[in-house]
Design a protein around this nucleic acid. Structure first.
Length: 266
DNA sequence: CTGACATCCTGACGGC
DNA sequence: TGCCGTCAGGATGTCA
């Protein structure tokens, strides 16, 4: 599932391949759920527009278009893919949008499970959440002050922090030695700073490896990432801890499957 | 404010 | 082999 590192990898890959190009035409599927903005409006806004820049904000991919045009937003959901393909490449099943570009290639949005969303930026995007890679120590600590919810649930809450999903929540809590059910507001400043450090480290490392490929995540060229090979806990319930060999335990926290080491995490 | 739960959706996987 | 039930989860919404 695409979280911050995967979305960053896709956004950067797409940017390198399409920036400066003009969108010649737009095709959209007939699956209304995929489009938060009506597909006809999206097609109208995009057709003839130049793609100035493609970047990541939280888990959203933002395409900045020529002046006067709205921004084009892509959320990958769980299984969404944004692919730069030649026009000759067979169109895969579950393709919901195809943008034909002046360079001859196509930018395609493919999403089997249809949790992904395409929209224009009319109402703004991102919300109040902060970026984990740039937030200050004091602001990070303040996010959790007085909160009774489990720290894992707080990490997943996009209105607090952007871009953290199930994989990086579990991985950062493991690396910080903190149990996922601990009340967020009861963590000490030292623990929260340890968590922040672990989170930044794990996100940056995952970005450097092209993200985690579980489910069916791939980058703009359809290439898988490698960080899943370094997962310490995510999806490893019942297996042994790579540090202390204790069997890893499974819980549900914040409605999500959660795996932790009862020995390494307190 | 909080958590528990349902909803959307399809592919993968386990059991029989 | 093949069918069927279960599970996975990001964002959002309902309800207690």
């Amino acid at each position: 599932m695409p979280e911050l590192p995967e979305v960053e990898t896709v956004a950067n890959g797409v940017h390198e391949r399409v920036h400066g190009q003009t969108i010649l035409s737009v095709w959209t599927s007939d699956k209304p759920q995929t489009f938060k903005t009506p597909p006809a409006e999206i097609a109208e806004a995009l057709t003839g527009a130049k793609i100035e820049r493609v970047r990541r904000v939280g888990k959203t991919i933002v395409a900045d278009l020529s002046k006067g045009r709205p921004q084009f937003l892509v959320h990958l959901g769980m299984t969404g893919r944004l692919l730069v393909s030649t026009a000759e490449t067979p169109v895969p099943p579950h393709t919901h949008a195809i943008l034909s570009l002046s360079g001859g290639k196509e930018l395609r949005f493919v999403d089997a499970r249809r949790f992904g969303r395409l929209s224009l930026d009319r109402e703004g995007y991102g919300g109040p959440g902060r970026e984990p890679l740039t937030i200050s120590d004091d602001d990070f600590v303040a996010l959790f002050k007085g909160r009774k919810i489990a720290i894992k649930a707080a990490l997943l809450n996009q209105s607090l922090l952007h871009g953290v999903g199930n994989i990086y929540a579990d991985e950062s809590l493991f690396r910080a030695g903190i149990r996922p059910r601990r009340a967020a507001g009861r963590l000490t400043r030292a623990e929260l700073l340890r968590l922040k450090l672990a989170l930044v480290e794990v996100l940056k490392h995952a970005i450097s490896l092209g993200g985690s490929s579980v489910s069916d995540y791939v980058d703009a060229d359809g290439v898988a990432g490698f960080f899943q090979l370094e997962h310490m806990v995510y999806s490893r319930a019942g297996e042994t801890c790579k540090i202390c060999a204790t069997p890893l335990k499974k819980l549900v926290v914040g409605g999500r499957t959660t795996v932790f080491c009862p020995t390494c995490q307190h």
